[in-house]
Simulated scan of single mutants.
Amino acid sequence: MRTNFKIAAAAVLLLAGVGAAAAQDVVITPEQDTVVREYVKKQPLASVKVPGVELNVGTALPDTVEVHEIPNVKYRYAVIDNRTVLVDPGTRKIVKVYD
């Protein structure tokens, strides 16, 4: 009984740590969000099609998709299927999808 309790407690702590780490990965402040939205409006890109790629946070874009820099912002952007996505340049993972 005691061993089961220890295992359960360890599992809860592990899952809590994973959730906390995931929540800290991407933080886009309201100010950054405003900068991104304004920049994207001023610098429109042609939309590209990427078959087989779902536009969800965490999805990695293939190397064939060109991502574009936004001055003073850590992330890059692309327009895919008429939706703007914010991308981590190091991992190429989508961090935000704008509708």
Rank of each mutant, 00 (worst) to 15 (best):
residue 34 T to D: 01
residue 70 I to V: 01
residue 36 V to M: 06
residue 22 A to E: 12
residue 67 V to W: 07
residue 87 V to E: 10
residue 66 E to R: 14
residue 36 V to K: 00
residue 38 E to S: 06
residue 61 L to E: 01
residue 78 A to Q: 03
residue 76 R to T: 12
residue 36 V to T: 00
residue 22 A to Y: 08
residue 10 A to M: 08
residue 22 A to G: 08
residue 23 A to T: 02
residue 25 D to L: 14
residue 83 R to K: 07
residue 38 E to R: 07
residue 17 G to M: 12
residue 20 A to L: 13
residue 94 I to F: 13
residue 94 I to T: 00
residue 37 R to A: 05
residue 20 A to D: 04
residue 68 H to F: 09
residue 3 T to R: 14
residue 98 Y to S: 04
residue 8 A to R: 10
residue 57 V to H: 03
residue 98 Y to N: 05
residue 15 L to H: 07
residue 64 T to I: 10
residue 80 I to M: 03
residue 95 V to T: 04
residue 13 L to H: 08
residue 70 I to S: 02
residue 63 D to T: 14
residue 85 V to K: 02
residue 75 Y to H: 06
residue 61 L to Y: 11
residue 30 P to D: 04
residue 79 V to S: 09
residue 61 L to P: 05
residue 11 A to K: 02
residue 41 K to C: 02
residue 62 P to E: 15
residue 94 I to N: 02
residue 70 I to E: 07
residue 9 A to T: 09
residue 36 V to A: 01
residue 71 P to D: 00
residue 85 V to G: 04
residue 54 E to P: 01
residue 67 V to C: 13
residue 73 V to T: 02
residue 44 P to W: 08
residue 81 D to R: 06
residue 93 K to Q: 05
residue 95 V to E: 08
residue 75 Y to F: 10
residue 65 V to P: 12
residue 53 V to N: 13
residue 64 T to E: 14
residue 50 V to F: 09
residue 90 G to R: 07
residue 46 A to G: 14
residue 77 Y to K: 01
residue 45 L to Y: 11
residue 43 Q to K: 03
residue 13 L to K: 10
residue 93 K to G: 08
residue 50 V to K: 14
residue 30 P to H: 00
residue 14 L to G: 07
residue 95 V to R: 03
residue 43 Q to L: 04
residue 58 G to Y: 06
residue 37 R to T: 04
residue 75 Y to N: 09
residue 83 R to N: 04
residue 22 A to T: 08
residue 6 K to W: 11
residue 47 S to R: 10
residue 40 V to M: 03
residue 41 K to P: 08
residue 20 A to F: 06
residue 32 Q to N: 03
residue 91 T to M: 05
residue 58 G to V: 12
residue 9 A to W: 09
residue 6 K to D: 15
residue 56 N to P: 02
residue 51 P to G: 12
residue 77 Y to S: 06
residue 29 T to Q: 02
residue 23 A to Y: 05
residue 88 D to K: 05
residue 22 A to V: 15
residue 89 P to S: 07
residue 1 M to W: 15
residue 15 L to S: 11
residue 59 T to K: 07
residue 18 V to N: 05
residue 63 D to L: 15
residue 72 N to P: 07
residue 25 D to A: 12
